[in-house]
């Protein structure tokens, strides 16, 4: 393999970071700042009171609620795995409250630690 430019992994990371910054800056300047300066910001600021308010269905919505993203993800995964999530939640309720489960976990950790430092 002699074709192309070969770097070591650290140089490659530095190079890619530099290129990302260069291209990102070019995109920002050309497609945002330049066009905003040339046209976007020239739109007259007609000061209607609801101009910067969130509007839902054509009506001014005072505060727009955003659902909890993490809960949504868990909900979708639970719906996808109905039986598994049932077993998991039942199992967690039935066993994870008992002290001997934690004792088993500590015991297991001790065995693993013992094997590692042997």
């Amino acid at each position: 393999m002699a074709f192309g430019m070969i770097f070591d992994p650290y140089e490659f990371v530095a190079l890619m970071s530099g290129l990302i910054a260069l291209i990102g800056l070019s995109v920002y300047v050309v497609f945002y700042e330049l066009f905003q300066e040339a046209a976007g910001r020239k739109v007259a600021e007609e000061g209607t009171p609801i101009r910067y308010y969130p509007v839902m269905g054509g009506w001014d919505a005072d505060i727009s609620e955003t659902p909890a993203i993490g809960r949504l993800v868990v909900d979708i995964l639970q719906r996808a795995w109905k039986n598994a999530s049932k077993v998991l939640s039942r199992g967690a309720k039935a066993y994870m409250r008992d002290w001997y489960v934690y004792a088993y976990i500590v015991l297991l950790a001790l065995v693993v630690a013992a094997l590692m430092v042997r």
Binding site: F35, G40, V43, Y52, Y53
Partner: peptide
């Protein structure tokens, strides 16, 4: 890209 960048409060 030529439109005004409108962001609510």
């Amino acid at each position: 890209v030529s439109k005004e960048d409108l962001v609510n409060e």
